[in-house]
């Protein structure tokens, strides 16, 4: 990570010098105070205050997520390609290679754990709110299609029989998909009940 150390009379002054030198703006950097000798009390006008800052360029979250993901894949002994594409609010990392089953885990358990940890890691010291979505061999896309089919067929049955049905527990991301699909479906409403990780969707007839 690129960084500079600057000594100046005030924090503002030091930061300004550093930003000019790095040629970036304030949102792209991390600032640490290394030394500070503040002038205190009544005699302050006699002292000269001094501050030393270290200003480093923050890694952008896409770079960080990709780097972490690659590191983990190497650790798992999986050779694979990582493909990045962005859409508003999301950064998708698609992995393709050998041993994708191991990366995905049963019902996507490993893939979800990995995605969760990488999201925590990249958002820890960065305000960027884009979510990282990790997919392996198109697993999430296929899952989405399956969920869509499931949601529609159950909604159909609920409407026909006029009786509510409870789906099996799903992670938040999958529940969101089901809610979205059935949002515009007339005759049924959806809501969730229970606590994570056993929170489930209920599809119920309207009125």
């Amino acid at each position: 990570m690129k960084s500079v150390e600057v000594v100046a009379k005030t924090r503002e002054e030091a930061l300004e010098i550093a930003l000019k030198e790095l040629n970036v703006d304030e949102s792209q950097v991390k600032v640490e105070v290394l030394e500070e000798s503040a002038s205190k009390g009544l005699l302050s006008f006699l002292n000269v205050s001094k501050i030393k800052l270290r200003v480093s360029i923050k890694e952008d979250i896409t770079e960080k997520a990709t780097r972490l993901l690659r590191e983990i894949l190497v650790n798992m002994g999986i050779s694979a390609q990582v493909e990045v594409f962005k859409r508003p609010g999301y950064i998708n990392l698609n992995v393709n290679g050998d041993n994708m089953g191991r990366l995905i885990g049963r019902h996507g358990k490993t893939l979800n754990a990995l995605q969760y940890l990488i999201n925590i890691a990249v958002h820890k010291d960065n305000k960027d709110t884009d979510r990282i979505i990790i997919d392996a061999a198109g697993y999430r896309r296929r899952r989405e299609e399956n969920l869509e089919r499931l949601a529609l067929s159950i909604a159909d049955r609920v409407k026909r029989k006029g009786r509510k049905e409870i789906l099996y527990p799903m992670p938040p991301q999958e529940r969101r998909i089901v809610h979205l699909i059935l949002q515009d479906y007339n005759g049924v409403i959806t809501y969730s009940e229970g606590e994570d990780p056993r929170r489930r969707i209920v599809i119920s007839p309207e009125k």
Partner: peptide
Amino acid sequence: KRGRVIKAIRTLVWAT
């Protein structure tokens, strides 16, 4: 929260 992070770490370690 409710051990979510440590659980995720375990899942990943087991997979590795």
